[in-house]
Amino acid sequence: MRALACLILTVVVLGVVGCQATPSTPSADEVNGEVVVSAASSLTEAFSDTAKAFEAKYPRTKVTLNFASSAALATQINEGAPADIFASADRVQMDNVKAERKSAPGVVFALNRLVIAKPKGSPAVATYADLAKPNVKVVLAADGVPVGTYATQSLAAAEKSAAFGTGFQARVIANVRSREANVRAVLTKVQLGEADAAIVYSTDVATAPEVEPVAIPDAYNVTSEYVIAPLTAGKNARAASAFVAFVRSPEGQALLSQRGFTIPAR
């Protein structure tokens, strides 16, 4: 009797382990159903492409995309939002998701750079230093929102250099008129012409014809890291791991690259 129980247990354990050890590229028929992807706002266009290509490759799947700031998504996931995938615009928000909510550790799948966005033809800002000019209306993302965190890092780096000098960061912060909930809300304020300048990702500027970029010099720029992980709250673990694998596949990486993201070295 005990031997039998042991045997059953062993089979079950092996079965479970076996499932987890399934190679990351299962056949198209095995992967099916809905995959809910919670992704950073800046991935809006890129992940829409990815979802389309993923559905084409696995015709029995349906990808549902949910875009917001990574900070808001992390809160939602910790509160039990039923997402299969989290794609965060920084490590901080991926780490903010409780370990038991992730079924695999996060991996970096794309990189981005910061840029200043200004209304096309606006004379208010021509260089990074101009952000500190009096009466320039600057909009940044809120604290905790990845692009806001990166912007703060960039300003702090500029502050340390002789070219900008002490007080640069404080002068820019004094020019900040609004702290928006996500990078696309920041961009919208520039598109509307309400803000003279904003710090966003270089990929965002390409999505808005009313906006043009002003470069942030490399010395003060920040490389942002996009991190993806499958979640335990999801109902579709198999499709979730297939989605992560697809994003990291040459095909998935090419789609990101087309939208201006940099591909990390593997």
Partner: peptide, 12 residues
């Protein structure tokens, strides 16, 4: 409330 919920320093 929105700022706190969406990842602000006060958090949830």
């Amino acid at each position: 409330v929105v700022a706190a919920f969406e990842g602000g320093p006060l958090g949830l």
